[in-house]
Design a protein around this nucleic acid. Structure first.
Lengths: 192, 192
DNA sequence: CGGTTCCTTGAGGATGATCAACGAGGGTGG
DNA sequence: CCACCCTCGTTGATCATCCTCAAGGAACCG
């Protein structure tokens, strides 16, 4: 989102996170702007009963956790590295200065947040609708990058955490979808 | 959000909508920036089965529908006036020019969208969790403007549409909540 | 005062969650 | 190389819960 050139100019630091290492946790106050150079992370919540809800995945080149940073509010979710991940950290202060001094960057963030609202609206609409198949389709649609059938590299548990369903329900539903030719399952992998 | 002064300067027009009049419909392309002078509107979707899902309510002083406008994408939901409502309409072009020429306005929108993402994250987390009571509490919490008990002026059907539950479930759940002293019901009105 | 709109209740049914158990594959260390 | 462990996928049975359908009552408005 922000060029590496600019990040360096404003004093960003590159930090490496190990797989399963937390970047920040729910209810902490934001101190940094985060942008992924390499790797991927997930934002998630835990319910009291131990169930997990996945808010979203972020990959190479993407930034995350900006809304609480801009609002100066506590993180509403935790962030964890899914693999070895290298992330640029820029202090809140310098981030704000960078925004102020670079209007085109600020505008890019406006568009970025607009896109986030747009996606969230779409997802919440599809997922509140109880039918498991619709929920799962909404998830799969957000995964797709090409129009052709492609391999989905999320586990059934991950799909369950994202859609608010249970693993067993996901398994049974995708089996039904396979029967209806909505997707393929080859060697346990989903192709959609 | 934008001062009336500025709106006028960039050629905004004040339009009056009758109760239940649509401001725009799902899948239309955005042409205007909308800001409410007086009244209130609701953004909503219909599912194939005729069930309605309410994305959100917007009142006096608030703007709505900016994300698709900024992204130049089709509206993912429809907007309807809930009462007699007067709305400033500003053409897309002039809105973009206004943003460019008034950095402080642009920054305000950045904060506004950050707030929207933040709220959506919170709501989707609470509402995906199946328990009706938690869903309803999430809705009621977003309604509250004071810390004391206050009257909730939404119908049970409206709560149902927002939370993805059925009316009967809402009725039964709030009755249980009343028994547990989580809210009061006086003359059918909810106080929370 | 008649018509909406909203609220309420009950019975029955569908469906997703829960619980328990097992299989398959991959990686690791002895 | 093999035994073990861990993660992931799978299946069946049972249960709880919310939805559905149907009906009627209450409140509000012109």
């Amino acid at each position: 989102m922000i060029t590496i050139n600019l990040l360096n100019r404003y004093g960003a630091v590159l930090v490496e996170y190990a797989p399963k290492e937390n970047i920040f946790k729910e209810n902490e106050l934001p101190l940094f702007y985060y942008q992924i150079l390499e790797g991927s992370i997930k934002m998630y919540n835990f319910y009291e009963d131990g169930k997990e809800y996945t808010q979203g995945y972020f990959n190479k080149g993407q930034s995350f956790g900006e809304p609480p940073l801009l609002l100066n509010k506590k993180y509403p979710a935790s962030a964890i590295a899914l693999e070895k991940t290298r992330i640029y950290k820029l202090s809140k202060n310098n981030f704000m200065i960078l925004l102020e001094e670079n209007p085109e960057v600020q505008f890019n963030f406006l568009i970025l947040l607009a896109q986030r609202v747009y996606n969230k609206s779409y997802i919440s609409k599809e997922i509140i609708n109880q039918k498991p198949e619709i929920r799962i389709r909404a998830f799969l649609d957000t995964c797709k990058v090409t129009p052709e059938k492609e391999k989905i590299s999320y586990t059934r548990q991950e799909i369950a955490n994202f859609t608010g369903l249970r693993v067993e329900t996901v398994i049974r539903t995708i089996l039904k979808m396979k029967k209806n030719r909505l997707l393929d399952i080859i060697n346990h992998k989903i192709y959609y």
